[in-house]
């Protein structure tokens, strides 16, 4: 009986006006969730304009009197500009290196006949089991032995080959229609021409997607730079935020300054995401398969 009344109530429901108000509820809930998710960031931006004494008035959530001065101080006096540049160089090298290496590897895997193909692919894929913490101690020693400690090489080298990127390019190459490949064979197109004139132009979206993922990932690195870079001026911005924490002024922690630093460290990846979210989403759609 109970199920009966329930189902009649339900069938009576889809009236136009019901759907409209229903939609309004959905929009309301969605806006609420999004604001809640963004609230800490909005507050951080607001607080980044406050002086320490304004920060210490806890309920003061208005724009502070510092304006952008905290940002200036963070970038200049606290060297955040240098750290951001280091992060930017690191992330760019990793993006370019990873894309280039993975394109070459995928070209070999998809378009070449050679012995032990399957084993080679497995060898690459198995590295998914080896995140940095699994090998951090010997890796650190290796960097020291190579004399790479405190260098850009140490924070980029270990990251420029990647199972994920090879896998993504491989999937994408395999989805290119067979007849295009046949056609290239009929024309006798060489591998280099094929890569440059056909594969790369046809993989623009995927390359953009992999680049975004890699950039955000590289920019987010914290543990490894913390371990391997001890010279402050060579440090990346994520660890640089840590240095800001010591900043205090007449006994008060300069939270406004720290917030400014945090916001600065967020801007580049956020910008990249907003601009390139389309290829990113498409790439993720392939990754999960």
């Amino acid at each position: 009986m109970a199920t009966n009344t329930e189902s009649t109530a339900a069938t009576a429901r889809p009236e136009l006006s019901d759907y409209l108000s229903d939609d309004l509820v959905i929009h309301g809930l969605l806006v609420f969730s999004i604001v809640l998710m963004g609230l800490p960031l909005i507050l951080a931006v607001v607080m980044s304009t406050q002086t320490p004494s304004e920060v210490y008035e806890v309920t003061n959530v208005g724009i502070g009197s510092q304006g952008l001065a905290n940002y200036q101080t963070a970038l200049g006096e606290y060297n955040l500009g240098q750290y951001m540049w280091n992060s930017f160089v690191m992330a760019s090298i990793i993006v370019v290196g990873k894309v280039a290496l993975s394109l070459l590897a995928a070209l070999a895997l998809v378009y070449y006949r050679f012995p032990y193909e399957r084993a080679v692919f497995m060898f690459i894929l198995l590295t998914l089991l080896l995140p940095v913490p699994v090998r951090i101690v010997p890796l650190f020693q290796l960097m020291a032995d190579l004399g790479w400690a405190n260098s850009m090489l140490s924070i980029t080298g270990p990251y420029i080959a990647s199972a994920t990127a090879v896998f993504l390019f491989r999937q994408h190459f395999m989805s290119i229609p067979a007849s295009l490949v046949d056609n290239a064979r009929l024309d006798g197109v060489g591998p280099f021409t094929f890569l440059v004139k056909v594969l790369i132009p046809m993989s623009k979206g995927m390359i953009a997607g992999v680049s975004v993922i890699t950039f955000i990932y590289a920019w987010n690195q914290y543990l490894w730079p913390l371990v391997v870079i001890s010279a402050q001026e060579k440090q990346v911005v994520q660890v640089g935020i840590r240095y800001l924490q010591g900043a205090s002024q007449s006994g008060l922690t300069q939270w406004g300054l720290i917030m400014a630093g945090a916001v600065l460290a967020l801007i580049p990846p956020l910008l990249v995401l907003v601009v390139l979210h389309r290829p990113l989403l498409k790439t993720f759609a392939i990754q999960q398969k």
Partner: peptide, 19 residues
């Protein structure tokens, strides 16, 4: 074509993992 990827994977992933 696989050498660059392999070099990095072996030097910075497999070797340290085995170590």
């Amino acid at each position: 074509l696989l050498v660059p990827t392999f070099a990095v994977l072996i030097a910075f992933l497999y070797y340290p993992a085995v170590e």
